[in-house]
Structure formats: structure tokens, C-alpha cells
Design a protein around this nucleic acid. Sequence first.
DNA 1: TATTGTTATACTCTATAACTATA
DNA 2: TATAGTTATAGAGTATAACAATA
Lengths: 129, 129
Amino acid sequence: MQRATHATLHLIATELVDLDLTVSEINALANLADGQGRTVSQLGAAVGARPTTLTSVLDRLERRGHITRGTRAGDRRSVLIELTDSGRAAAAVITQTLTTMETRTLAGLPAEAVAGFYAVLDALVKEGP
Amino acid sequence: MQRATHATLHLIATELVDLDLTVSEINALANLADGQGRTVSQLGAAVGARPTTLTSVLDRLERRGHITRGTRAGDRRSVLIELTDSGRAAAAVITQTLTTMETRTLAGLPAEAVAGFYAVLDALVKEGP
DNA sequence: TATTGTTATACTCTATAACTATA
DNA sequence: TATAGTTATAGAGTATAACAATA
């Protein structure tokens, strides 16, 4: 499983090499792709990254002009992460590439296998920390 | 998939916390558990780690007394990795724990799901880099 | 007093390139 | 010259703890 994950992440990074982003940055942008802002906590929960990791990931994305950090109405401790225009463009490329890859990979496999795959993944996530 | 892998690795590390080993070290010992020596290249191919990563992993395992580095008859460029007594003991704990965890996790799932899971993993590994 | 996010520190993994010692 | 492994270097993820601002 570890090898499959690594191979897949490597393949994604290779396909998206033009964007010059790390896996974590791709992950963050993909999660923000719907255009809705998220706080750092929300994004961290979604991508499964620690706050401290996310800080440096967001630092790089902000430096590249892909996101902005703003304050959220209601709670001024929270930081609201939102996509810029270039961030939206990158996120669109990412989601389209991921969809294409997923379709291509799963195309040759029986539907039961794919269903079983997701069922096991689900069980593993629930068993986890 | 990334989350499931991460959760699983974290769970393994938690179950084996007494051994005080990293995921890569556990991975290496598990691969050596059959008692057969392996060269650095062979071990790297088996665990999917770069030579440079393996060097530092093996450095730590050697310092802890879990493995020895020897020369292989026939080609003195190769380094033969072998388990010591303490390495064998640790490897035995690891394989037993992994077997127990796998059985426990997959017990509640239909056999078709598990078969599909492995089929998809296989396809992903082959698609990879 | 508790929560949100950042900073600091230390360790591990990754990738690339240069190096050695053998072949 | 080519291969096996190590060393060097820099970037990135992880974990823990301490911290400032806000609640």
C-alpha cells in the first residue's frame, strides 16, 4: 500500500511538473478548488496535515501568489485561506488532471474491485489514529 | 489513499512503539525477517527506498546492533546486510504484529473487497514511476 | 483558562550530484 | 567505463513544545 501510494503521488507530481508544486501544495490547492475559503484548521483536517506543516505549505503558496491569508469575520484568531486568480487556475489544472488519471487507471478494472478498494481504504482510515 | 496509508503506518508505529523504530526501520527489518541476507540494492528494491535513504536507515540499525554490514563473496563492492540476534528478535515482533493487525482489520470485510483492494493496488504500482 | 495559528527545534525522508572502491 | 554504496547538500514533512493574539 505504501508503495502504491508513493507511486501514485510520484505520478501525480510528474504529470503536474509544470506547476512546480510539491505533493502537499497540490493537496491543499485541490481541497480549495471549489472556491470556498477555509481556515487553517479546516484545511488541515481535510488534507490530513499538522498545523505546523500547513504553515510552511501556506507560506510557499502565499509567496507564489496562489493564496491569500485573511481574517474571518466572527473569530479573529482564525486565518481564512482563499485562492487568488492564479491559485484558481492551478487548482483547475490539478482537479482536471486528477480526474483524468483516476478514470484512466480504474478504467481497466472491474467495478467490484474498485468498490472493494474504497471499502478497505475506508476501514483503514477508521482504524487509524 | 494517502490518508489510509498514513493512518496505517501511524498505527503500526504506535503498536510497535516499544521497539523505538521509525517506519523505514520497521520496513527494513520486516523485509529481512526471513533470516536471509540481502545487499543494499536488493533491500532498497524491496522496500522502495533510495540508496541514500537506506544508508542512514542502516546506519541507525547498525548502531543499535540490529544488523551487520558485511562483504559478499563474489563482488566486494556489494554490502551484505544481515540480522543480528536482537535484529531477529525485533523482526519477529514486527511480523507477528503486522499479521495480527492485518487479520484484525480485514476480518470484518468481504473477501471480494479485499481481493479488489489488492487488484487496484497492483494496478497502481504498475502504473507508477 | 482555552483555542488559533505561528515559531523554534530536532529528526527523518527525498532527490541530486560527487566521490570511493571495486569490477 | 560502469556499478555498489557512501557522503554531502538542500528541501520538505513530522512531532513536540513554547508563544502571541484572541476568545
